[in-house]
Structures are given as structure tokens and as C-alpha cells.
Design a protein around this nucleic acid. Structure first.
Lengths: 223, 223, 223, 223
DNA sequence: TAATAATCGAGACGGTACGTCGCGTCTTCTG
DNA sequence: CAGAAGACGCGACGTACCGTCTCGATTATTA
């Protein structure tokens, strides 16, 4: 599925239309024929989807039929772009996702705080935006949607965390006798718990710092 | 929703039928008239649901229609018992859920290890049983199903964790200048992360101990 | 296709529903199960079809979708009864067809005049009723519809004509050295020509007598 | 509809293009600009249509879309030439229709036999050619197609028949106290009955003569 | 024992959505 | 310009489920 290409956030297209160049320059393309797809229609579809989701429509009830009607678009125009609902939602989701954070690299603590803060921000955005909250909280229904989201959004950030932990171990900031994967989960687990599993969980400011510091220091009373 | 009554695992019934007794003997009720509901039908419905889910049917495609057909049961027989799919699944889920663990109370570490181990076991059960994994991993689609599961399964265990942490603070095993909720999340977050958010995550034996000990001790290198 | 059973003008049904008894009495049936089909719905479908056709809708544009909408009926209710448009139209057509004429048998001339007069009447009915005219004049599009109509309506009347001609030959009213089929066509051909092939053709009163008498007497001038 | 012009068998064109000359040289017209229409495309369309119809496609299922795909032609290229399916079929039909017969004029009998024989030949051609039979037998669906065919093919031959009958009356070969229209229908009706209404009807050699002679002589036994 | 009443499997009911196909129009690029 | 290619909004196709509603038949309690 081209949705997992990870790099290009371009809309999906596995139809009969020649997928284009792949070459280095725009002059290399075989000049795809026929009327090009309307960007306006594409935007109308996205807009309608967001409007419906913000209007309270649950993801499970967002039918292609209603979507086309709201967008003033033919159903075929949607099916021409995405094979089904799931792929459409992946694009929709990616179009509003925050970009990967840039880690300062000054220390393991700073990196981890930055990373967790970006997760918190995303969680807050989800909370304020009915759209994202709805989509994300119900996303596990759709395996393809979930997998794609996992590969393109979750996994890259997980790697950021793993790298930060590894660097911290090399610098002596973190014990190096521990499993890197486990250590990473100790940081991200609590935050994701509040964001995804317990959607009502509080994501107050400073939470990222508190988690990082508490995990780093441990819970034992200091004598 | 009567599904949140928490205590009685009896099937839902908000129909015209007098709700009956709940008492120990048949003489306590107003003696409901007419043909009693068939337990065989009920079991056939559960069996069919489990068979279909284990057969690979995604939860989203498990229609009432197909369920009734597979179970050899009339659709009305299903709707007479549950208002919809979600409520049926709640009952189905509860019927295979493990009971709450009993904490030894000997120390905060022991309590938390016991609690996390029970979560791990449930995760393993989900992994071996295609049924539960399917239901749980896709459950967030159905808000009611999710809420009910949250209230009846997740929340009680969260309270167990909170109590264990609080007791640990009182006993001086855990720093008491920390937020109890946060501390609890530090323990359960990593495990739920692997169970729910990252379903491929490893749940190897000893994971509970490792999480608890690492979080308790912190990540700072010991001099 | 049960539409060619010729005898019973009952609606078509080749679905999963057990077709019933076939036995001699109504008590022999295996007591078909489930909710019986609604006669009201059936009538509503017919009414809507007639209303639409009389309202000027060409047969080719009479979609099942519009029909269901007009009748206030689900599409499945239509497809449950007829496999497609053609079979529905056969029933519709038969429901307004005139019954076979009864031939007096007094003479070949009387029989043939009666037969042709009934064809003329049907043609006139078609002309006044936009419904029948539309259906019939465009019917040849649908091979199944045409075949069924041919077998159940046209062919029986053709046999009536053949019998009348044969009796006339036996009685000495008609030369018996001629092909019966050809003779019959000499009578019915002109009338059907005006009715079907040249729909604007005149079907004035007395036409049946004139055709029969002219064909019987021949065109040669009497000396 | 320009399709009823009767004379020129040129393809329909009511578009913006100046209709051109018909003259022998390019200097006679207003010098139409731009690329001229491709005759190859036109032929490809006809060929594709005939191939599909002979391949068994019913007229009702011969979509413009499939036609263009089969012909390797853009849909616009078809719509540029004909307003719709019907007009295309008229041209298609005319391109394979036999020319009007030339009546010998020696006697009413000879004229009528010649005329009926040409109808019989057309019927036979239809029977051997799956194309024409399909088109003609299903043509009544399309009112415009039917009307055009009627005006350009049927009506001229009807006039031929009427003239022949009239001449026969003037010559004393046919009783002149009869309605000319009726007499004509007596001849053509039986043959068209077998050709169109009862497509399985036999069109054996000598049928034309037998019909004409029988109608002329009448059915009364000669004493 | 007979009447009553709620259940059973079965399936029809009016709807909504599915994903596909064809309509006739349009918009792009190539000849 | 006309050519092919194909996207556009639209609407019908035939199927699947939704949740509700009759059916005849079954199985209890109550009279």
C-alpha cells in the first residue's frame, strides 16, 4: 500500500492512472494523459470530512455516501482516490498531524522531555479538536488504518525515543545495563496511557518534565 | 446503560418483560408469565460470535444478521436480549475476562508486581485467543463498549494500583511527594503500551518485575 | 422462468422462499414460515409503476430506484418479488391485459371477426391508456419480456385463430388447399400491422369485419 | 432531427462546425478550420458497434462507454458526431439497409410480389445477420430510432405499395371499391407479422407469391 | 384441561450505504 | 482545432444490514 511509503504525504492512488515519474525532475514524467484530478474536489472531500466529524458524526457513521453528498462530489471521485474509508482516513489524519519533533540533543533528559512534550501537544490538539480525538480514539477498529498510522506516525517517534535513550546510555546519563526498549516504554507509556487508553486523563503543562524526572530519579525515598 | 451496573453479569433486558427477582428462590418474583427465554439460544449466540471472531471475522464485519444466521437464531431473539451490538460484545467480553487479582499487601513492590502480572496475563490471553485480541484491539470504535469496559474492567484495577501506591507511600517505600495518579501511571503505562497500543509488543515473563523494579530504582547510574 | 407458466397470473417468485404446496388442497402446504409478503406493498408497486408510466415516463427510464421511491417501498421488496425489471413488467402487463375472447363458433367469419375485434379493442385500449401503449410499443427491447408476453398472450390467441380457420376449412367455408398458418396470418397480419408496427394506424370501428370480408372474398373485381 | 433528411446518408452533425459543402472541391466551402474529422475514427466506431452486436451484446447493453473503449476512441469523438445512442444506431442501421426495390410496373401482381419479396429478403438478411435482427427487433425501445427508421425505410416502401395498389385499381386488376390503405395492409401485414412480431416465423421462398395470390383470389372455395 | 402470554425460528418491511457502471460534459495534452 | 484519455457530478444498479414487524408454532404459568 502506497500509504506506507512514509515519506510523501501525497494522496493515495493505486488506480489505472500511471503513477508518474519517480525520476529526479518534473520533465522526466511520461506526461500522464487525460484530465487531471481536481484538487478542488480533493479539498472539498477533506473539508466535508472534517466538518462532519467536528459536527459530531462518529467515525463509524461517516459514510462515503454522506461524505460525497456533503462535499458536493460524486462517489466515484472518492473511490478514484482511495480504495476505501480506511485509506481516506489515513490521509485525513496525516493532513492534520503535527510534524516530528526535533530533539535538541543536549542531554537525554532534554531530548525525552521534548519528545514527550510533543506527544502531549498532540494529545491536547486531539482534545480540542473533535476531529482528531474522534478519529484517533476509534481508529483501532480499522486494522489497515491503524497499521498505517502506526508505521507512519507512531513508529518514527518511537525510534526518536530509542535513539535518545541510547545516547543517554552512551553519555552515562542512563544506566546501560537496561533494555533500551523497556526504558523507552517507561517514558512514553504513561503519557500514551493518558492520551489514548484513558482519554479523559489530564495532560497538564509540565507533565512531560515530571514524567521524565520521576522515571530518571526513581521512586525510592532519598534519605 | 444497564451494562454498567458492574455487579451482575446478567444479560441486558430493558424490554417489556418484568425484570424478575434476582433473589434466591422462585417465590420472590412476580412470577413472569409466558414462555421463558431459552438459555440454549443465548449460548448459541455466544458460541456463534466466538466462532466467527476466531474464524477471522473482524469485529466491524460481525453483523447481527450473520450472527443470527450462524447461531440458527432469529434476529429478534438477539434484540430481545441486547439493544445492539455493543452491549452484546460487552457481555461477551466480560464472560471471558479474568477476575480482578488479589494483592498480597506484603509490600508495594509485591502488590504492583502482582497487579502488573495480571495485566500481562490478560495480554497474553488476548494474544493466544484471537477472539479477545480482536475485540479489544478494535473496541475503541464503539464508545459505549469502550466506556463500559473501562468502567467495569480497567477502572477497578486502576483503583487497585492507586491503593497499592498509596500504601507504599504510607509505609515509606515510595516517595510521598509525588502525585499518586502519576506514579500509578508510571507502572501501568508501559505495560498497557505494549498490550494495547503496540499489540506486537513483547510480554515476556518477568516483565512485570522488571518494570516495577526499574521504575522504583530509577535510571540514574549508581556510583 | 415461472413467468411462462401461462396459467396463474400470480407474481413471480423464485427466491429462497419455499414455493408452497402444489398439492390439491390448501391444507397440503408445508406452512411457509416467516412473515408473509405484504399485498399492500405489491399493490403500491403496481400503482406507482402505472402512475409513472401514465405520467409520461418512458419504460426505459422507469428505474427500480424511482419506482421504489414513488411506491414508498424498499428496493429489496421489489427484488424479492421479481428478479429484474423485465419480469415485473410482464406481471404489470398481464394485470391489465384483456382476457382471451370467446369465439361464437357459428361460422368461420364470425369467429374471425370476433377474434380480430378483440385484437382491435386491445389496440384501442393501448391507445387510450398511455401505460399499455408505452409498455407494448417498447417491449421488444427486453427479450425475456417479449418472449413471455408472446407465450402467454400472443400465442394463445394465435391458436384461437388457427382453430377457427381449420374449422372453416372443415365446414367448406374456406378453401382447404391452403396453408392454415398462412391463412391465419392473412387475417391477423393487417390488424397487428396497424397496432404494433404502425402505431398511428387507424383502428376504426368495423375494421375487423372489413378485413375478414375482404380477405375471404379476395380483391378480384366481380364481373 | 436531421436524421430524417432521408437523402444523404452522411453522419449527423449539429455542432458548431460549419456544415460544409458536399461539393467536389475544397474551394467551394467556407473553408472549415482546424483538424478535419478522422474517417478512421468513424469507421472504427461502426466496426466496434457491429462487432459488439454480433458478439451477442443486446442493444440495450451497448453503452457508449464500452463502444468507445472497443473502438479505441474518445467518448467525445462519438458525441461530436451523434447526439446520442439512437442517432448513431440510425446511421448504423441505414448503412446496412437494402435499397428500395424497383417495381416492374407490368401488373399489380408483379409489383406486389416484387415489393413483398424485397421485404422477405430483408427479413432473411436480418435472420442471418445477428446484427440487424438484434437492432431491429429491439428497436421499438427507442422512439427516435423507431420514428426515423419508420420515416426513412418503412414509409417509402409503404408508398410503393400504395402506388402499386392504386395502379392495380386503375387497370381493373383490383376492385376499386376498397380502401387503398386497407388493401395495402392486407399484403404487407402478413409478411411483417412473420418478420417483426413473430421473429421465428418462416420466410420460405415463394412466400411473397403465395400471399399476393391468395389475397387476390380470396379464400372462398371455387365451385 | 383450557386459556393466556411471552418465547422461538423465520423472514418481510422501509431504509441507508455499499462499491460499480454508465451517462453526457469537461479539461488536459498530443498531433 | 480534433484526437485519446480520463476526471467530473449525477444517478441507477443489485446486495447487505439495520432495527422493527408480523407470521405459525412452542412452552410455560394461571385459571
Amino acid at each position: 500500500m502506497s500509504l506506507q511509503d512514509g515519506g510523501t504525504p501525497e494522496p493515495h492512488d493505486d488506480g489505472p492512472r500511471p503513477v508518474g515519474c519517480g525520476g529526479p525532475g518534473p520533465e522526466a514524467g511520461p506526461a500522464r494523459r487525460g484530465r487531471p484530478r481536481s484538487e478542488a474536489a480533493e479539498q472539498a472531500i477533506f473539508d466535508a470530512a472534517i466538518a462532519l466529524l467536528e459536527g459530531g458524526t462518529p467515525l463509524a457513521e461517516l459514510s462515503i455516501e454522506k461524505l460525497a453528498r456533503t462535499a458536493g462530489v460524486g462517489k466515484a471521485t472518492i473511490y478514484r482516490r482511495w480504495p476505501g474509508k480506511e485509506e481516506l482516513f489515513v490521509d485525513l489524519l496525516r493532513s492534520v498531524e503535527l510534524p516530528d519533533p526535533v530533539l535538541p540533543g543536549t542531554s537525554a533528559r532534554d531530548d525525552l522531555v521534548t519528545l514527550l512534550e510533543s506527544i502531549r501537544q498532540r494529545g491536547l490538539a486531539k482534545r480540542t479538536s473533535a476531529l482528531l480525538h474522534n478519529v484517533f480514539s476509534q481508529m483501532q477498529l480499522y486494522p489497515k488504518l491503524w497499521n498505517t498510522y502506526h508505521h507512519t506516525v507512531i513508529e518514527p517517534r518511537r525510534r526518536l525515543g530509542l535513539d535518545a535513550v541510547r545516547r543517554g546510555m552512551e553519555r552515562g546519563e542512563i544506566r546501560d545495563d537496561l533494555d533500551v526498549e523497556l526504558v523507552n516504554d517507561l517514558f512514553t507509556g504513561p503519557l500514551l496511557l493518558r492520551t489514548v487508553i484513558r482519554p479523559g486523563g489530564t495532560l497538564e503543562p509540565g507533565l512531560a518534565e515530571r514524567i521524565v524526572d520521576t522515571v530518571l530519579e526513581g521512586l525510592r525515598p532519598r534519605t
